[in-house]
Nucleic acid binder design. Structure first.
Lengths: 245, 245
DNA sequence: TCTATTATACCGACCGACGGTCTATTCTCA
DNA sequence: TGAGAATAGACCGTCGGTCGGTATAATAGA
């Protein structure tokens, strides 16, 4: 095997790219290190030069996800024209928009993200995302409390609940994919749509706002996300020779 | 090795008992099948006679947890004297009581439950618990809506949020243990206490009740749980020769 | 009641794949 | 030219899981 030397940062990113693809298509546990290094075209030794363990690779991947998500939302955070409620809604809108775009552009990725074997991966990403976004939410809520827009005694708590709501949609979506049939999907879409309305009201009331102040997604948005796949035909079930562990 | 034949159900329960002990002390991933069968004193073949896989063992364990939890709340569910709000509060009180008792009787178990390596185990148990308890909550809420006690358009959604809140305390507690020092623990206790108050209010308002109607735990209850360990000295960190995967 | 026969419970050697380690080699650059 | 970063790949112990086989229990026919 010829020896190929690349710029370290590039190699690291490449490794993350291949790991991401494999983890998403086969799940963290089922994608082996050998798969990853084979895809990346490097040796075990090279891999362990960049990452201390497979676990560390997962961690780095989650961090990268969080970093990218944060970058996409910087403008909202910095916009001085926004009041706390506006900023909070803008933040929610951004994350909604990110979901729609992901669904449209990479339905396969979107779908695999919610497969049961990806629970570990998903959890790690969410953990990293929480660590990144919670402080931002707290700051927004705190400002809102200060200027009288919001009323709550526990900004951190409310921030956590916002994050929780975001993650909770996961289970509903997972059920939609688990069912498989279009009918199941339809039920799941309507459930999720109702759930989003509920989350909005929960946050409204938790923050002492009139019902309808918080907007997580306009009616029909869930359906828009979930039917975006038509443009990008399903990858179907795992086409890989099954491993038995 | 002598061949010992036991009643199948007994053997199965024994297997679950040993698996539970090992999974809790070392985590699902780190406790190997060989550890389990060694503890139970049986062969690989015997194990695979009872369970199709290690995964199936975990599943069965989670189901057993859920079944036991369900058994503990049957009286509350059946009590005809309770109105929906009373029943909901009684249910919350029961689960609180269960936590306090667990903490007092088996602090080691309680602590290990929240260690990071037990995330998978914890998640499975919660999944099983959700599947078991959500329908019960839905039924209670639905009745409350019918008789005018509660006001909501999405009983399933509210039930899910109740379950979510129950699980969310996990993260806060996990942080308390992660910190380690008594000071960290103290901060975590106060955070959790405030968080419980927030959850109560969130549910009050979500169900259209006056603030203070829902009681998850009386003030000071969290501290009572977390300091119950004094009676039962900590097991400290993992005393086992570390495995490298 | 005493066997044949079948079904069930159990044993443990064995397997391929896994994550991870180690030594050796080659490249880069001061 | 020498130090150290980058890469290679053989190798290791352990893992979850399989398999051929054995001992015991249950059942049936005589």
């Amino acid at each position: 095997m010829p020896r190929i030397i690349k710029h370290p940062e590039l190699r690291r990113e490449e490794l993350l790219d291949h790991a991401q693809a494999l983890f998403l298509t086969h799940g963290y546990d089922r994608a082996s290190l050998n798969d990853v290094i084979a895809a990346a075209g490097i040796s075990k030794g090279a891999f362990y030069h960049y990452f201390a363990s497979k676990e560390a690779l997962l961690e780095a991947l989650a961090e990268r996800f969080a970093r990218q998500a944060l970058a996409g939302v910087q403008d909202v955070l910095r916009d001085p024209a926004l009041d706390p409620l506006g900023r909070l809604n803008a933040l929610l809108a951004k994350s909604r928009q990110a979901k729609v775009e992901t669904a449209a552009e990479a339905w396969a990725l979107f779908e695999t993200m919610f497969r049961p074997e990806n629970l570990v991966l998903f959890h790690r990403i969410n953990l990293a995302a929480s660590a990144t976004f919670s402080p931002l939410l707290v700051e927004i809520i705190r400002q809102g409390v200060e200027d009288g827009t919001f009323r709550t005694f526990d900004p951190e708590g409310v921030a956590d609940i916002v994050m929780q709501f975001g993650m909770a949609t996961h289970d509903v979506i997972a059920k939609a994919f688990a069912g498989g049939s279009d009918a199941d999907m339809d039920i799941a879409i309507e459930t999720l749509e109702r759930r989003v309305r509920l989350y909005e009201i929960a946050l409204d009331r938790l923050l002492g706002l009139p019902d309808g102040s918080i907007r997580i997604g306009e009616p029909g948005y869930v359906r828009a996300v979930m039917t975006a796949r038509r443009a990008n035909p399903s990858v179907g079930t795992d086409a890989r020779p099954s491993k038995n562990r």
